[in-house]
């Protein structure tokens, strides 16, 4: 076995796993505060990338594009929260999930109706040149994406640990009723959470868009995030990161070493099967606590 090649594949897998984590974190933020598995996260990501690209293509400077897109994402988040999730409060989680499935259809349709269906190129000014580190070839773009993801996770951590709203978020995640009882404003916290997940969607959308081109299939990256969530647990940011790394690595290794044996193209399901196998051993995921049933 060629170990340097193996390492290269592994590192490449881990780095692309970071991209999966990026999407998964958006899910976790919403899940922790409102118990919703927000399937529309992929559509939001598409919407963010499409909006940003379309704005800059119309001559808007980079940062103005970012700011406008962020404003739009916050507005959409608030809209979803008010018009869809709030009327469904106290419904079973699976109902909320199906509602976000509906939301994703609406956003996907609206995004393309608004900005068109053609594929947009997105250049973030990062060359995708292979870089040699310790004899292993690594994509510069992957490294950049990993750095951005790392910075974002650090930022989110600081935000939730040291700001008032962030502490409120953790209180709500812990016990919404108690948080309400001590006078935390759920409105403001939820707005903050949707904004945060909008930021995550934008960052992930830009990185994924630069990689794949900004187009409809971008919203399908949500399907890459789901096995990550299953592995890491729906409510753990650390889980999303570790899960993403595992899924990325497994996918690449399987594609390179097992793919040729079965005709390739297995990256579409190998993550699911791996996550499933893992779940059968540990039903609560990597970091999830085993729930105690109260009867």
């Amino acid at each position: 076995m060629d170990w340097s090649f193996f390492t290269e594949v592994l590192v490449g897998g881990l780095l692309s796993g970071v991209m999966y984590s990026l999407v998964a974190i958006g899910f976790v933020l919403i899940y922790k505060t409102s118990g919703v598995l927000n399937f529309a996260q992929g559509a939001l990501l598409l919407f963010a990338a499409l909006t940003f690209v379309s704005l800059t293509e119309r001559g808007l400077p980079f940062w103005a594009g970012i700011a406008l897109t962020l404003a739009a994402m916050t507005a959409i988040g608030a809209l979803i929260e008010r018009t869809v999730l709030r009327p469904l409060v106290n419904q079973p989680p699976i109902t909320l999930f199906m509602a976000t499935l509906g939301v994703s259809y609406v956003i996907e349709g609206a995004a393309q109706l608004l900005w068109g269906t053609q594929v947009h190129g997105l250049d973030l000014g990062i060359d995708d040149l292979p870089l040699e580190i310790g004899g292993v070839l690594i994509s510069t773009f992957d490294l950049f994406a990993a750095a951005v993801a790392g910075a974002m996770v650090a930022g989110l951590t600081l935000f939730f640990r040291y700001t008032r709203i962030g502490l409120g978020f953790r209180a709500v995640a812990d016990d919404p009723l108690a948080a309400l009882a001590v006078g935390l404003s759920l409105d403001r916290i939820w707005t903050a959470v949707w904004t945060a997940s909008g930021v995550v969607a934008l960052v992930a959308g830009l990185l994924w868009g630069a990689r794949l081109g900004v187009q409809f299939s971008l919203s399908l990256v949500v399907l890459k995030a789901l096995p990550v969530l299953v592995l890491g647990g729906f409510d753990s940011i650390a889980g999303a990161i570790v899960g993403g790394l595992i899924v990325g690595a497994v996918e690449k290794l399987a594609e390179v070493y097992a793919g040729p044996l079965v005709g390739g193209g297995i990256e579409g399901w190998i993550a699911y099967v791996a996550a499933l196998g893992f779940l059968l051993i540990r039903p609560a995921g990597l970091f999830g606590a085993k729930p105690v049933e109260r009867v």
Binding site: P227, A275, P283
Partner: peptide, 8 residues
């Protein structure tokens, strides 16, 4: 959710 995802 875990089951829903596994049916995927």
């Amino acid at each position: 959710f875990y089951l829903a995802v596994s049916t995927l």
